[in-house]
């Protein structure tokens, strides 16, 4: 069986591999957040939890986050900055003015 390091699966030999690229690697180790120039931020005061940004995020770098409101368990979008590339699809698709705004990356 292939070895798993903290970063990726390592195939030592052909016999360790499947005959095709089926789940050959997980790209989790590739923290694509480092590519980001523009940082989307969700303003939860305005966000209506429609989850459109969550549906459209291609990475996907928007998770559905559990939270409690009026004693009920609900979901809202939460941006995972480890993987968000800042592509802008979420703030383009967001139907509420100002619910997702952008900041220039500081670094």
């Amino acid at each position: 069986m292939p070895k798993k390091s903290d970063k990726k699966i390592i195939f030592e030999r052909v016999k360790d591999m499947p005959p095709l690229a089926v789940s050959l690697y997980t790209m989790d180790y590739n923290k694509t957040g480092s590519w980001r120039n523009v940082r989307p931020v969700i303003n939860y005061d305005k966000c209506i939890n429609c989850m459109i940004c969550w549906k459209f995020c291609p990475e996907p770098a928007i998770d559905a986050e559990k939270f409690e409101e009026d004693g009920k368990e609900k979901y809202r979008p939460a941006i995972n900055y480890e993987y968000c590339k800042g592509c802008g699809i979420c703030w383009t698709e967001c139907p509420v003015e100002g619910a997702i705004y952008t900041e220039e990356e500081a670094e």
Binding site: F11, R13, V14, M17, P19, L20, A21, V22, S23, L24, Y25, M27
Partner: peptide
């Protein structure tokens, strides 16, 4: 569920080609 044909770098692609030739 699995990912099929996902991005594979130079550290994996070469072996997959060898396997096809053997097949």
């Amino acid at each position: 569920p699995h990912a099929f044909g996902g991005l594979t770098g130079p550290d994996g692609y070469f072996e997959l080609r060898y396997i096809i030739q053997k097949a």
